[in-house]
Design a protein around this nucleic acid. Structure first.
Lengths: 342, 342
DNA sequence: TAAATCTCCGCAATCGATTGCATATTGTCA
DNA sequence: TGACAATATGCAATCGATTGCGGAGATTTA
């Protein structure tokens, strides 16, 4: 029952009466032609019966390629990042790579130490979902000479490739939608400005609002969380006269806006229309079902993995910026302006 | 800018004028006492200035310990498994381990191939969240001699440690709750019986129902998904006279039950009370807010990781079965039996 | 048939860190 | 001062797979 001594190349070599190097060549499809076919067959058969398992560690040490990709997330349990990770793992495993994931939170030093740790594990590349607009972690990776791709968020200076959604466009869809419904005083609960999503969506909001000849009203949330959306929403609701719609930078924030609206005894969409962002799972079931901007986070993960793999295998860094489209999903949290108007 | 030749032990040795073995000892806290303190300091300083990064691969090859743990999930994006993974990564990284995750779906051969792949990567252990009650994958791991811990689901024969929630107890809480409200005809949308959660919850339901002197009414869903809950719920609603409450094996199924109720023009909880299971994020926000049984999936992940690490470091396999408590969370999807009765 | 060419395979170094054993140096005690 | 212990360091093997180089033997060419 106990684990018998592992079957190594050497053992296979002994069993088949050839040299380990021959076994290695026979086992590797790309070098198999260097071995006589009958010998190769014999080796393959022996590998089969003895249950040979190659030690990837040893191979990695020699070749310098671990086929491991580090993934650093701010929060696995966040419904935004889980599907991203799903997309990443899907593409990686298709290509014979495996993700090593670190849930690093928002603490920069923690992130850096995870990066170091992953690099020590000789990962072939890194996917970062944690970066802020000015991010020391990226510098750190660059300095260490590791391929890096950013996902969901990008950094200010475009030093590395990134896969993001079209934040400005998405928020514009949201604004246009409520404007079309007839709203004129539209607030924005923005995400943290040190994150690209927060910043871009906020400026997108301003641009869209101005284009309609309206005034922007912005309150910033400290982080992307339901609880963090409440206070900014309350500030908007209390201080902006005639406010009839709120565009949130994120679905979670939008749920916080719901909470704020309810706590003031108002209703959505009767008094206030609300638009979210991301179309995360279940927001079609909340009450009222949330109008939001759909982003395919899974696709973002897939694309990020593809981009990284391409950089790794070809050796060139295209340093691309992939912008995925977003689309408006109208549900029941928005309607024509109601009673509270005037 | 390009990656300069990596700083190795040998390089450090040259730089400090000692033998690589001395450098190795100086760098490792546990062997540092074997080195003169002034030499050790000199080495440490050199490591610092040269930016030495130990190659974990090489160390792993030599020591046979990779400090990597394989995690196999059926679906990362599922709100049940994301927090489990969160708990796992938290505990692992505290202890200096990293998770390598595979999103294997429900396909057995895929799972097995992922297991093999992870073992080839020399993971020190595996956490499986995919197992069914009779699971070949577990046998496979056992045969390969890898430490394994199951999480969320357990297998029939208790060959390895597992961390699960108290499924029977949880469902009993649910049944008791609706019985107390006055319901007498209570159906169950069960999970797949080939999964331990499906099986245990179903038998828990039967036990609880019988204990109250009532009749069980069960329809099984093919998988844990919102869509999969609709048909079983429709069958119950159509064929069981007087049905006034449905206990679902899972929140997602409960949401499917909502869909079914709505499609028949009925209302919840007016006509039918519904209880879920898991208390996954946002079910407090759906309409109506879901009464459910709370399980801390994050805790399950933490405990599973702890258990595995203990087995790995001590070398003994306690083969424990950790059952985490569950608790009823009453919201608005349950109420006293309504109009449809009689 | 000698020379040139191919095929197939073994040899040995290598990746980078770890560790049992041996050795050199210093210190201690009788 | 000679013997012995303790301390500090070097040596070399090792983990398991990969790969450039070279050589033996078979095959083709002139």
């Amino acid at each position: 029952m106990a684990s018998s001594p592992p079957v190594t190349l050497k053992r296979l070599a002994d069993a088949t009466g050839v040299h380990p190097s021959t076994v290695s060549r026979a086992l590797n499809e790309k070098t198999r032609h260097l071995v006589a076919s009958d010998v190769a067959e014999r080796i393959l058969a022996a590998a089969q019966t003895l249950g040979y398992r190659p030690n990837r560690l040893a191979a990695s040490l020699r070749t310098g390629q671990s086929r491991l990709i580090g993934v650093i997330l701010p929060d696995i349990a966040n419904p935004v990042f889980a599907p991203i990770l799903g997309g990443i793992t899907e593409v990686l495993s298709e290509q014979g790579y495996s993700p090593v994931v670190a849930d690093a939170g928002n603490d920069r030093s923690r992130q850096t130490s995870f990066v170091d740790d992953l690099i020590n594990h000789q990962v072939d590349g890194l996917i970062l979902a944690t970066v802020s607009r000015e991010d020391g972690v990226v510098s750190h990776c660059l300095q260490r000479g590791v391929s890096v791709v950013l996902v969901n968020r990008s950094e200010q200076r475009g030093r590395v490739s990134a896969v993001v959604s079209d934040d400005a466009h998405g928020i514009r869809l949201a604004v246009d939608h409520v404007v079309e419904l007839g709203h004129r005083v539209i607030g924005h609960v923005s995400g943290p400005r040190h994150l690209s999503t927060g910043d871009l969506r906020q400026s997108g909001y301003i641009g869209a609002i101005r284009q309609h000849g309206l005034e922007p009203h912005i309150e910033e949330a400290e982080r992307y969380a339901r609880e963090a959306g409440i206070d900014p929403a309350l500030r908007l609701l209390r201080s902006v006269p005639g406010l009839s719609a709120i565009v949130a930078a994120n679905d979670l924030l939008a749920l916080g806006v719901f909470d704020a609206i309810q706590s003031l005894g108002l209703s959505c969409p009767g008094d206030i229309s609300v638009v979210g962002h991301n179309d995360m799972p279940l927001v079609d079931l909340v009450s009222p079902p949330l109008t939001t901007v759909r982003i395919s986070h899974r696709d973002m993960g897939c694309e990020a993995a593809r981009l990284l793999l391409e950089e790794i295998t070809t050796g060139v860094e295209p340093r691309r910026r992939l912008v995925l489209p977003s689309e408006l999903v109208v549900r029941a949290s928005t309607s024509v302006p109601g009673r509270r108007e005037g």
